[in-house]
């Protein structure tokens, strides 16, 4: 089968496309092409040899679904795509809305529902966690700078100011909050999330839900090194039943359908785990999962094919990933092809 994957931007703020493809490439059962769908001609995944068989440029989500669908239809005529795996947050709403139309031209998807995507919204995640006894830092959503004045009443500085899709800043006072608010709103629009700051180590889980409440697999990791952008640059698989059970609970209660990442922080004083965020797609470190024995991207492909998929019951503890900066050298011809023709 031919599988298309988005998000080949393996940059210092990486998308998960490259590791998803890498996970699929290791599976002998998958014959057919892997097609990379890219937004920018400089997405590193285009230039990685033996990764995508073919790459195509697609329109940014902000340019409208009709354009996106038309472009995909065109690519589909050439490549006969069987399955698309979108991997970026900002794409998901669009693909969820397009899934029926895509099915109409023979392309499967395996996506969360609209409601599941919305669960990261403040009251929903907050209420959901409260109802299910999961600890979560306090959150407010703000849509104007004035509302930042509410912060001291709510929980006091420092706070974390987050964009609706990406990026976060720690703000120690109103001025810093205001400056972060401006940067984020300019870039990602509204609303902006203001979150109570919890100090401690970061833990993450990559998981896959089957859409009926079952967790197909889940691998927990502690970040060993975090970049100044807050991205995990290395991490190690760990055996921590606490956060795994929270992940199972989230998948069970939401009937999560698709891959996901759960971000936790362990309060350095109380040693309690707080659920910071649910990301509705695989993380950029998802390749650690197959390396530790759970090929979750491949399991997602099987779920999309409506094959029965057994649950993974364990994974190897102590597997480490270390991300690496590596300069790919190529000729300007490839850049030209992707720029001018939109494909390579």
């Amino acid at each position: 089968m031919n599988i298309a994957v988005t998000g080949l931007n393996a940059t210092d703020n990486p998308g998960p496309g490259v590791p998803v493809i890498r996970s699929l490439k290791e599976v002998k059962e998958i014959s057919g092409n892997i097609i990379g769908l890219v937004y920018d001609p400089l997405e590193p995944g285009i230039y990685l040899e033996n990764l995508a068989d073919k790459c195509y440029q697609i329109p940014y989500p902000s340019s409208g679904l009709e354009n996106l669908f038309n472009r995909i239809s065109l690519i589909n005529e050439i490549e006969k795509i069987d399955l698309i795996i979108p991997t970026l947050d900002s794409e998901l709403y669009g693909f969820v809305k397009l899934q029926d139309k895509l099915r109409g031209i023979g392309i499967k998807t395996f996506l969360p529902t609209f409601e599941q995507l919305n669960i990261r919204g403040k009251d929903k995640l907050f209420d959901f966690c409260k109802e299910n006894g999961i600890k979560v830092p306090k959150n407010i959503l703000v849509a104007s700078a004035q509302e930042l004045y509410k912060i001291p009443d709510q929980f006091g500085y420092p706070v974390v100011i987050k964009g609706i899709f990406y990026e976060a800043y720690i703000a120690n006072n109103f001025d810093e909050a205001h400056s972060a608010f401006n940067k984020l709103s300019y870039k990602w629009g509204f609303p902006i999330i203001v979150q109570e700051f919890v100090k401690g180590d970061e833990f993450n889980v990559v998981a896959l839900g089957d859409g009926k409440g079952k967790t197909i697999g889940a691998v927990a990791m502690r970040k060993l090194y975090i970049t100044d952008k807050g991205k995990g640059w290395s991490g190690v698989t760990i055996d921590e039943p606490n956060i795994l059970s929270v992940s199972h609970k989230v998948i069970e209660k939401t009937k999560w359908r698709s891959g996901m990442e759960l971000e936790f922080i362990k309060d350095s004083i109380t040693n309690e785990y707080y659920l910071l965020e649910i990301n509705p797609r695989f993380p950029a470190w998802v390749y650690l999962a197959p390396s530790a024995g759970q090929n979750l991207p491949y399991a997602l492909v099987k779920l999309a094919n409506e094959e029965s998929v057994p649950q993974f019951d364990s994974y190897e503890i102590g597997k480490i990933f270390v991300r690496c900066s590596w300069d790919l050298i190529t000729d300007i011809k490839i850049f030209e092809r992707i720029t001018v023709k939109g494909e390579n």
Partner: peptide, 17 residues
């Protein structure tokens, strides 16, 4: 002119139709 991040003629084109 190609400017990184803005050079997607297959993308930033909501009016092709």
């Amino acid at each position: 002119k190609h400017i990184s991040g803005l050079m997607n003629k297959f993308g930033s084109n909501p009016t092709a139709s």
